[in-house]
């Protein structure tokens, strides 16, 4: 399992490197946040290398979309990597932000993600994410809140036809894991 950890860490780094090199090809790829997946203690099923790669990449893409969504208050940005309760909650959040004239800016400095549950049938994967996020909330042009402390999330991802979706994304206390 150790090589896999190293491999995913390398992969996540590769995303960042790749983003810098292919800025002309894809502007969105340039801002993919760094995600490092640790899968040493996943149970009951071990994670396949290709699955680890997909989960890592898709989770990074989900966070990129989330950041764009709450910055621009656009729910259409949630359709590619969010589903279920996660999508519902973010849709409510954006509607409320738009109504109140607020927007949230995330500066994403990366995610240390620990895969803790992978169901025997391969249909669900639970992750613990410690995210290094700078969060700034604006009311119009006025910044009303700013935070740089780490955020912890309990995440449930489920596979679709060609990607893994974030089905649940719940912020939890610092003592949760």
């Amino acid at each position: 399992m150790k090589p896999f950890l190293l491999w995913t860490a390398f992969l996540a780094g590769a995303f960042t490197l790749l983003a810098g090199e292919s800025a002309l090809v894809s502007a969105s790829a340039a801002s993919l946040p760094k995600v490092v997946l640790h899968a040493e203690s996943i149970a009951p099923r071990s994670i396949e290398q290709r699955t680890g790669e997909m989960v890592t990449h898709n989770y990074a893409q989900a966070w990129q979309d989330l950041a764009s969504c709450v910055e621009a208050n656009r729910t259409d940005l949630l359709k590619d990597f969010f589903t279920g309760e996660a999508k519902t909650r973010l849709t409510h959040l954006v509607a409320d932000q738009r109504k109140a004239g607020l927007r949230t800016h995330y500066e994403d400095h990366g995610h240390e993600v620990k895969a803790v549950f992978y169901s025997p049938d391969g249909g669900e994967m639970q992750l613990e994410d410690t995210a290094q996020l700078e969060m700034q909330v604006f009311d119009g042009q006025k910044m009303i809140y700013s935070s740089t402390s780490p955020h912890k999330y309990l995440v449930l991802m489920t596979p679709g036809a060609d990607r893994w979706y974030v089905r649940s994304l719940e912020s939890v206390g610092n003592d949760a894991f």
Binding site: L93, D96, D139, E170
Partner: peptide
């Protein structure tokens, strides 16, 4: 004052 509540799925002002 203006009061804001920022939650995971709700924002109030």
């Amino acid at each position: 004052a203006t009061f804001y509540l920022l939650g995971p799925s709700r924002v109030a002002k």
